[in-house]
Simulated scan of single mutants.
Amino acid sequence: MANQLIAVDAGALDALVAEVKALRQEVQAARITPENEWITIPKAAQRLEVSESTIRRRIGSGEIEAKGSGKMRLVRL
Rank of each mutant, 00 (worst) to 15 (best):
70 G>Y: 00
56 R>E: 03
63 E>C: 02
67 K>L: 02
70 G>M: 05
21 K>Q: 10
71 K>E: 05
32 I>Y: 04
33 T>A: 08
46 Q>T: 14
29 A>V: 01
48 L>K: 06
20 V>S: 05
27 V>T: 06
20 V>T: 03
15 A>Q: 07
11 G>T: 13
31 R>D: 02
41 I>A: 08
44 A>N: 06
59 I>P: 09
23 L>E: 09
34 P>T: 10
65 E>M: 09
13 L>G: 07
19 E>Q: 11
61 S>R: 08
48 L>P: 15
13 L>M: 13
20 V>K: 14
35 E>Y: 13
23 L>V: 01
24 R>G: 05
18 A>P: 06
39 I>W: 02
69 S>R: 08
38 W>P: 02
18 A>K: 13
53 S>A: 10
17 V>E: 06
26 E>C: 09
34 P>Q: 10
59 I>L: 04
55 I>G: 03
33 T>S: 10
33 T>D: 03
45 A>S: 06
28 Q>I: 00
16 L>F: 02
71 K>N: 10
69 S>D: 02
32 I>A: 07
67 K>Y: 00
46 Q>S: 11
44 A>T: 02
50 V>C: 15
33 T>C: 04
35 E>W: 14
30 A>G: 05
48 L>N: 13
36 N>R: 14
23 L>P: 13
47 R>W: 06
27 V>K: 05
18 A>H: 09
29 A>Q: 08
39 I>Q: 08
38 W>T: 06
27 V>N: 10
68 G>T: 01
18 A>E: 08
28 Q>F: 00
57 R>E: 01
37 E>A: 15
44 A>K: 05
69 S>M: 05
23 L>M: 02
38 W>R: 13
45 A>D: 05
31 R>L: 09
62 G>R: 08
45 A>L: 06
25 Q>E: 07
21 K>T: 04
23 L>T: 09
17 V>F: 07
68 G>E: 01
17 V>K: 08
51 S>H: 07
60 G>P: 09
